[in-house]
């Protein structure tokens, strides 16, 4: 049984403001991830690693191919799903952890993290958010403040805490450890291993060799699928 199956995926950007310039990024992308497995994407910067994650998340439109994500007993094709199916899939099955926090005005750090568990009662989601913020070494005095004015590192850790909090079957990680200190990098490794033990299928972009060694079971070179320009 697989949690994620990508087949024949192609993506080209057409830049209409540059006279219709076509930028082919990926072609014939093919891979699969089983529960509890972590696949690390590799290849030079600009080869399309982040695009792969965005295609799986439904953030980028897929031109060709299928992107099947397990939802219980069925597989949903993100490439063809209606917007509300994708929203439902993201809510229940598909997590995306990035280093960039999109801060919402006036919402506290604790609530930003707790909102990732919006199906649970408020006290429960807040308690679990607090535990996660502690693990990522965010001082308690910051929890009730909106993070817009926090340091870049703090914002990053808040976003990672939010991303890792829900236990979703498929997790997409885009450089979660970039620019983290050694202590917090260790926390990420621990948390990712916990998610793997509970059966999450993970696709990760990790530049740090130590972290990749620690979490990845397989490596996939995206250069193989780079579209010829």
């Amino acid at each position: 049984m697989l949690s994620l199956e990508v087949a024949g995926v192609a993506k080209t950007f057409t830049m209409h403001l540059q006279g219709g310039l076509r930028l082919p990024v990926l072609q014939n992308l093919e891979f699969a991830v089983a529960p509890g497995q972590c696949v690390a994407l590799s290849g030079p910067s600009g080869v399309g690693k982040s695009s792969v994650l965005k295609l799986i998340f439904g953030n980028y439109r897929c031109d060709e191919g299928t992107i099947l994500v397990r939802d219980g007993d069925t597989m949903v094709d993100v490439a063809r799903a209606a917007p509300r199916q994708i929203l439902s899939l993201r809510r229940r099955c598909l997590g995306y952890v990035t280093q960039f926090l999109r801060a919402v005005p006036r919402v506290s750090a604790l609530d930003i993290v707790a909102d990732a568990l919006s199906d649970l009662p408020r006290e429960t989601s807040r308690a679990r958010a607090a535990a996660m913020l502690s693990r990522f070494n965010i001082p308690e005095r910051l929890w009730n403040l909106p993070p817009a004015t926090f340091s870049g590192g703090e914002q990053q850790r808040i976003n990672i805490a939010r991303g890792f909090l829900p236990e979703k079957p498929v997790l997409l990680l885009d450089e979660p450890t970039a620019s983290l200190d050694a202590k917090n990098r260790e926390v990420v490794i621990e948390v990712v291993r916990e998610h793997k033990r509970r059966g999450a299928a993970i696709v990760a972009i990790v530049h740090d060799d130590l972290v990749r060694e620690a979490i990845a079971d397989a490596s996939l070179d995206i250069t193989r699928f780079a579209a010829a320009a």
Binding site: F13, K54, G58, N59, Y60, R61, P83, I86, L87
Partner: peptide, 9 residues
């Protein structure tokens, strides 16, 4: 489409 999809792609 999805808001983030239309705005990002």
């Amino acid at each position: 489409g999805l808001t983030d999809q239309v705005l990002d792609d």
